[in-house]
């Protein structure tokens, strides 16, 4: 509906501008050269996979006249990618996919950028987090596990996650606050490594994204306890996502989802933003995208315009709060 509205606005402005006949090139903005798609993360990760999938879909269905190139700028927990987009003021051919490091990196490293320095385009989906334990462990429900943490010693339970002071550790800190005990957080490079450490019994639990652990679940190596979302996962697939209770249902009051959204350079006109909103709307309608969403058990929400801005602003506040409580803010 929001989309219909923004499309209507776009149509109106188009009509107006063509009436006024100011600049014909404005009439219907289109990329005039190759579009750079920045990924503030390394090759092979979740954001990388999604971006390359989008690139492939756009290419296959010819949704754009110009080509799109994907560029990884992962330095400094993604700071490099965000700084690049921030500094390319008014560049209409540069977009960036975000993950939680949009909020966490500036807080944890002190690198001067925030989401407000960029132009929000649209939300693509929300990635879920699930509390996993090894299937040989005695914990059947989230309550079992949290009770065990509560009755154990500080730092007795070991949680593995991706990266340091990023989404996985934030969820871990939230669990610590609920349980009132410290967990030992062990950072690894990628989600696959984390899942493997759990299967190998080197650690006690993870908060892997669904796609990182689903195969081990189906093979009976790991057990999902609860999903950190407001409602159960609706994704249809071979895996029975609907059976996993939310953490709230299980009595653990934690909610966390990760933004997979698109931003672009500051200082671009509304026509340009509208073009990209429309483009990603087309991407979302393809079968490939739907399959990808189902496989990864994403929560599908599409926001753009002011709704998206509001969502991001709220998320920024939540992150700031969590990071401050956890003591993850950069010293200077």
């Amino acid at each position: 509906m929001k989309l219909a509205k923004s499309l209507a606005v776009a149509a109106l402005t188009t009509a107006l501008t063509s009436l006024a006949a100011v600049a014909p090139s404005w009439a219907e903005w289109k990329p005039s050269k190759t579009v750079e798609f920045i990924i503030p993360a390394g090759t092979g990760g979740g954001a990388d996979q999604m971006a390359r999938m989008i690139q492939g879909v756009i290419q296959k269905h010819q949704l754009m006249d110009q080509s799109m190139v994907v560029i990884n700028k992962s330095g400094g927990a993604g700071a490099e990618g965000f700084m690049d987009v921030k500094e390319s003021d008014g560049n209409e051919h540069k977009i960036i996919i975000t993950l939680s490091n949009l909020f966490t990196t500036p807080l944890a490293t002190g690198v001067p950028f925030s989401w407000e320095d960029l132009t929000p385009v649209s939300m693509l989906a929300l990635d879920n987090f699930i509390l996993w334990v090894n299937s040989e462990s005695p914990y059947q429900t989230a309550t079992d596990y949290i009770e065990a943490v509560k009755s154990g010693a500080d730092s007795q339970f070991k949680m593995a996650g991706t990266g340091s002071k990023q989404e996985d550790q934030i969820v871990t800190v939230a669990i610590e606050q609920v349980a009132g005990k410290k967990l030992t957080y062990v950072p690894f490079k990628g989600g696959g490594d984390v899942a493997k450490q759990l299967v190998g019994g080197h650690i006690d639990s993870t908060v892997n994204n669904p796609i990182e652990a689903v195969s081990f679940w189906q093979a009976g190596n790991v057990r999902p306890l609860c999903v950190f979302a407001a409602s159960r996962i609706e994704a249809q697939g071979t895996a029975k996502w609907q059976d996993i209770p939310t953490c709230k249902e299980a009595g653990v009051e934690i909610e966390y989802q990760m933004l997979r959204g698109i931003f672009m350079s500051p200082g671009v006109s509304q026509e340009v933003v509208d073009y990209y909103v429309d483009l990603f709307q087309k991407v979302r309608e393809t079968q490939e995208w739907k399959d990808f969403m189902a496989k990864g058990a994403f929560t599908q929400t599409f926001l753009s315009g002011d709704d998206y801005k509001k969502w991001v602003a709220d998320a920024a506040v939540v992150h700031k709060d969590l990071m401050t409580k956890a003591g993850f803010l950069a010293a200077n």
Binding site: S215, F216, Q218
Partner: peptide, 10 residues
């Protein structure tokens, strides 16, 4: 993953 295959034990 993009081709619709789930790598892993299965």
């Amino acid at each position: 993953l993009i081709w619709g295959l789930q790598p892993g034990p299965m």
